[in-house]
């Protein structure tokens, strides 16, 4: 009997450990890799020093999960975020047209003036860019030599690459979606379906997300993976290895831009603007560079030598406009899946 009541007490005690509330809060939704190991801890510390505010990063999932969370809260009329960092350009259409974010001008965010113009893809500037990267193929140079690698989409269909490709599912991964959009950009709609039909024999597997695909690649299960053009910089700087190299199909790379915005309904609009401006400052931009392994949005950011030498900037970046994605995405994903399972 005593043991039973002991258990009850334990359970009751666990029930009490709830989190307390602080002073003025600024809640920032972002994706987990940005918050835990990216620039977030630095931003939080530096910003709190300058302003009397408690910056709270909420990042329980990936960028899409967080956007879903934001949309659900907004629908219920109870948005709890003030700022959202991490709308990918492939998901831009999902965020647009829902009146989610406050439109911004150069006056609101002075550092916007130094941002590369080709990154400003939201006409209302409700979402502004803070980083960009390029989806491309990465290969294992111990398996494929420079002469071996395909240089065009057509060459990638060669039977000598049978089961050599690791891809991400465009339905669950934004990297996978970028690659699908790239093929649509290249072959048009519905031409891309034919391309995928021919590509099938060369695919080893299609994973849920980028990390599973890259893990397979690192376990040497197949020598080609869809990943980022900055991966070489990462492996040189963090792993001291030049084994993994970038291949550019048709000298292209699919451009992926990450955007941020101020959530409508915030009570601290001015502070939010200052925060966005701070994220665009060279100081934070440099930090983003080597924690996220992407290119900075601010042109005035200095690139570290090793990063500059090893990260590949594709000569011919491509992108499908958000509007076109919004109109067709549902159908594209369905058609694509039909080809994959049906052959």
């Amino acid at each position: 009997m005593q043991k039973r009541s002991l258990l009850l007490i334990v359970i009751a005690l666990m029930a009490i450990g709830v989190i307390g509330v602080g002073t003025e809060k600024l809640v920032v939704y972002t994706y987990s890799s940005f918050a835990s190991y990216g620039a977030a801890p630095f931003i939080e510390e530096a910003f709190e020093k300058k302003h009397d505010v408690d910056v709270q990063f909420v990042a329980t999932g990936d960028a899409r999960m967080m956007l879903t969370k934001l949309l659900t809260e907004q629908e219920a009329g109870r948005p709890s975020a003030d700022v959202f960092i991490g709308v990918g350009s492939v998901d831009l259409s999902m965020a647009q047209g829902r009146d989610l974010f406050i439109p911004l001008t150069g006056e609101d965010v002075p550092n916007l003036a130094s941002v590369r113009e080709d990154l400003l893809i939201d006409p209302t500037n409700s979402l502004i860019p803070y980083e960009h990267c390029y989806i491309t193929l990465v290969y294992d140079s111990q398996v494929l030599t420079v002469e071996d690698i395909p240089l065009t989409f057509e060459q990638l269909l060669d039977p000598k690459y049978k089961k050599m490709l690791i891809l991400e599912d465009p339905r669950t991964s934004s990297v996978g979606l970028a690659f699908l959009l790239w093929t649509i950009h290249q072959y048009g709609d519905p031409g891309y379906l034919d391309y995928w039909r021919k590509l099938l024999p060369n695919i080893l597997t299609i994973t849920q997300g980028w990390s599973a695909a890259y893990d397979l690649f690192l376990a040497h299960e197949a020598p080609i993976v869809v990943s980022f053009s900055t991966d070489t910089a990462y492996s040189v700087i963090e792993e001291g290895s030049t084994r993994y190299k970038i291949m550019l199909l048709n000298s292209q790379g699919y451009r992926s831009i990450y955007l941020m915005g101020i959530v409508k309904g915030t009570k601290q609009e001015e502070l939010c603007k200052e925060l966005l401006d701070f994220v665009l400052s060279p100081q934070v931009q440099e930090m983003i560079l080597t924690t996220e392994w992407v290119f900075p949005a601010n042109r005035e950011t200095l690139l570290p030598v090793l990063f500059y030498q090893n990260a590949v900037f594709p000569p011919d970046p491509v992108m499908v406009p958000a509007e076109r994605i919004g109109e067709n995405l549902n159908r594209w994903l369905l058609e694509w899946a039909g080809v994959i399972v049906g052959g």
């Binding site: 990936d62 599973a212 690192l218 990462y234």
Partner: peptide, 10 residues
């Protein structure tokens, strides 16, 4: 575990 993977720390 998921966070670490997303941050490239396999």
């Amino acid at each position: 575990v998921n966070d670490l993977r997303a941050a490239r720390s396999f």
